[in-house]
Nucleic acid binder design. Structure first.
Length: 139
DNA sequence: GCCAACGTTGGC
DNA sequence: GCCAACGTTGGC
């Protein structure tokens, strides 16, 4: 199983909205960056991803699961094959892990969140995943 | 094919 | 609100 991190501005799509979307999940649309798109295409059903609130909050607030693998983005311009995956909220972090927390943890200094701060869909290593879960109070 | 100009993202 | 980083566009 692979791990990821996806970013959203809570003003446009928040963790609460993701939770309300339920177990069936919802499409993660609007990705218009090729690196991010490639990451979406690599996701497999059952993969987990951290849900990060950018701009407002700047913290990892929950964990989502891939419930449907990449397929064409219905919101994309015609002729441009952007993709979406479907995510369902799985569990919240008991204690959100902020960007500041990540930066303060030497073991997380290589996280894509810091190194490629503008990338909206990023891979997370198994070690990073475990540590962030621990910091966030997730078993 | 290079590079300047411009737009967007996201932290501060 | 500002600015740095990065991607994209368009002139040459």
């Amino acid at each position: 199983m692979a791990y990821w991190l996806v970013k959203s501005e809570p003003d446009s799509w928040s963790w609460d909205m993701q939770v309300k979307a339920g177990a069936k999940g919802t499409e993660w649309s609007g990705v218009r960056n090729h690196t991010a798109k490639q990451n979406l295409e690599k996701m497999k059903k059952g993969d987990r991803a951290f849900f990060y609130h950018s701009n407002v909050g700047k913290e990892i607030v929950g964990i989502v699961e891939v419930v449907k693998e990449s397929h064409p983005d219905p919101t994309g311009p015609k002729g441009e094959p952007w993709v979406v995956v479907d995510f369902a909220a799985r569990e919240p972090l008991a204690k959100p892990v902020t960007l500041q927390d990540v930066k303060a943890e030497p073991k997380l200094k290589d996280m894509a969140l810091i190194k490629y701060s503008r990338l909206s869909v990023q891979p997370v290593t198994a070690d990073e995943w475990k540590l962030v879960c621990k910091m966030g109070g997730v078993k």
